[in-house]
């Protein structure tokens, strides 16, 4: 469980060291679009990529493209951190990258649809500001694809 009170002192201190202030004025897209009309992209920081893609470097603010029709068998993880469990991801990719859940939601018309591509960063070893350029680049790609909503998963 990631309740800080449940963790050993060294782990609690390590995680609290990552408490950084806001990146700027609040960012907020007002609600209004019904969920069933939203086009959703999945964005993870789990360091996922296609087997044929270049692995993430030790620290790396770039992202990898995960095509919308990507099969689980083609997905690998090159995250630098060793401080999380990977056996669950080996058992079920949806535990980290819930692509099948979102395909079901699209099929059931709960959401409007899914993006042509999804995306993975590798969240480790860099300050939050390091991701600004690639995240803003990604936003432009999402707009061009008609995506209005991103669903984000850490690891």
């Amino acid at each position: 469980m990631v309740r800080l009170s449940d963790l050993p002192d060294y782990e609690r201190e390590h995680l609290l060291d990552k408490n950084l202030g806001p990146l700027g004025p609040p960012a907020w897209v007002p609600p209004g679009t019904p969920l069933r009309e939203r086009r959703v992209a999945l964005v993870t920081t789990a360091g996922l990529h296609r087997r044929s893609d270049s692995a993430f470097d030790l620290t790396d603010a770039s992202y990898r493209v995960l095509p919308g029709d990507l099969g689980a068998a083609d997905l690998v993880m090159s995250h630098s951190s060793v401080n999380f469990d990977r056996s669950g991801f080996a058992e079920d990719v949806n535990l980290v990258f819930p692509i099948d859940r979102f395909r079901e939601l699209a099929e059931d018309d709960v959401i409007g649809g899914l993006a042509s591509n999804h995306f993975s960063f590798m969240g480790a070893g860099l300050l939050p500001e390091a991701y600004e350029a690639s995240a803003r680049d990604l936003a432009r790609i999402l707009h061009r694809d008609g995506v209005d909503t991103a669903f984000l998963t850490p690891v």
Binding site: L23, T33, A135, R136, L138, F151, T153, P154
Partner: peptide
């Protein structure tokens, strides 16, 4: 951080 930058570029974000 990724959520913040995407949202500030007009993409609504939510997640875990």
């Amino acid at each position: 951080a990724v959520a913040y930058y995407l949202e500030s570029a007009g993409i609504a974000t939510t997640g875990i």
